[in-house]
Design a protein around this nucleic acid. Structure first.
Lengths: 241, 241
DNA sequence: TCGGGTCTGTACGTTTTCAGACAAAATCCT
DNA sequence: AGGATTTTGTCTGAAAACGTACAGACCCGA
């Protein structure tokens, strides 16, 4: 159902042919990804790419008034630091921040670039992943405009759980509000509503998903569309690649 | 100020070294891009890439209820059909539709792919352009959530004018509403407000920009952020590349 | 165990946008 | 010129989310 759950490995690295993977492995360094850690900021050079093993990293657009809105999420199905292979080492408007604590493997910017430019399997896998990420971005752009908060919250919780091994999330409403680009009080109301319908249970700094099917029914279509695209482009390749 | 205005050439093709450009040129076919023409639909194979010379193409996310929201715009600074080089020949959730009538050069999907995979200059230029496009998507995602309609309308009109040789746009409020993901009546009110402040003049199916500086002041920051990124990544390369 | 900091639930009036509708104006076609 | 069609301006009441505020609940460290 959710193939990228419960795997303590990175799907992109996994899909590499053994020779390529072994060569790259010698450059990989294990890192913890604690909640809230910033992997890069707008206008700062990106020094490493991160291949998450567990947990999730949020890519958020930062506005001039300091507010921020999540544009996409990256878990073990992807990699943080795509700009490095696109020929630039920074982003003007985005921050990468750990949303669910976990761990990953990091690779120096220059090494990633060299490997990418060899034009072997990593090259194609990254581009394929990128397409799925772009689908996520464009779907989120529409979602932010058209869908109600409760639908978007349900979508967001589902996407979180996909990157998690359990149904329990350690997140404050304040953090969620910043991701969804709404008031904290708004999240409070929406969460209460989901709980009242028996879909989640929540207390201070904690949300547990009780009824996943129910959440999927409440969520806007965006969850499903994005999931489908990742499955088509990343997970299938990970098997056949 | 707006280097990609007033050039009847495509910046990506322009930036190619002469040998590469000549080789590719033999495969290019001139096409008109009439207002409203659909270049591809969700879940349909993309058969050609389009390098606009004049006019602009809108990439819109299509939702299940048939409504749509613009995710990004592509003019002579870019190319329509990026998925082709990312290893897939379709998009699940997006449509490409001509927003400002013009013309372009089209290239068969397979040819683009072959050229891309040679790993020469086209490869790098497309990826560089892609990064700027991603910046546009992520900025729009935040913009759709955080900014008021009048600010977004101003932003949108500016982006249109950048792809145009004149200050006059042939567009109905209905069309604009669909791009911005709002009601037609909302656009009517917002446009009246901009006109009352002397920034634009509009009548049936027509908008003229009167005070560009004023529009820039009214627009949200998103216009400027995206413009800057295109300048950094595409236009500078077009000169030095 | 007590106090300070953090997090949550809830309230208020306000702003923005919505849905739907209708008539006036502009344009097109014959 | 006349009628049909398209486009626009405006109206109504309603929904959603806003900014702000405050008190209660919870948690942690001294």
């Amino acid at each position: 159902m959710e193939p990228h759950i419960n795997q303590k490995s990175n799907l992109i690295l996994n899909a590499l042919p053994s020779q390529e993977r072994e060569r790259i492995s010698t450059h990989l360094e294990y890192v913890e990804l604690p909640l809230g850690k910033t992997l890069y900021n707008p206008e700062e050079p990106i020094r490493h790419a991160y291949f998450p093993l567990t947990g999730a990293v949020s890519i958020v657009t930062v506005l001039r008034d300091g507010s921020s809105v999540e544009a996409g999420v990256i878990g073990n199905e992807g990699v943080v630091g795509i700009p490095l292979v696109l020929g630039t080492e920074m982003e003007l408007n985005r921050r990468a921040v750990v949303q669910i604590a976990g761990s990953g493997l990091k690779l120096k910017a220059t090494t990633l670039n060299e490997e990418f430019r060899r034009g072997e399997q990593l090259h194609d896998l990254l581009l394929s992943y990128l397409h799925a990420f772009i689908t996520q971005l464009s779907q989120t752009a529409a979602c932010n405009r058209m869908h109600r908060l409760d639908e978007r919250l349900a979508r967001w919780l589902l996407a979180c759980q996909d990157r998690l091994n359990s149904s329990e999330l350690q997140l404050t409403q304040e953090f969620i509000a910043e991701m969804l680009g709404v008031r904290r009080a708004g999240v409070s109301v929406a969460a209460a509503q989901l709980q009242q319908r028996g879909l989640i249970k929540h207390k201070r700094g904690y949300i547990q998903i009780i009824d996943r099917a129910g959440l999927e029914a409440t969520s806007c279509e965006c969850y499903e569309v994005v999931r489908q695209e990742y499955q088509r482009l990343v997970e299938n390749r990970a098997v056949t690649g």
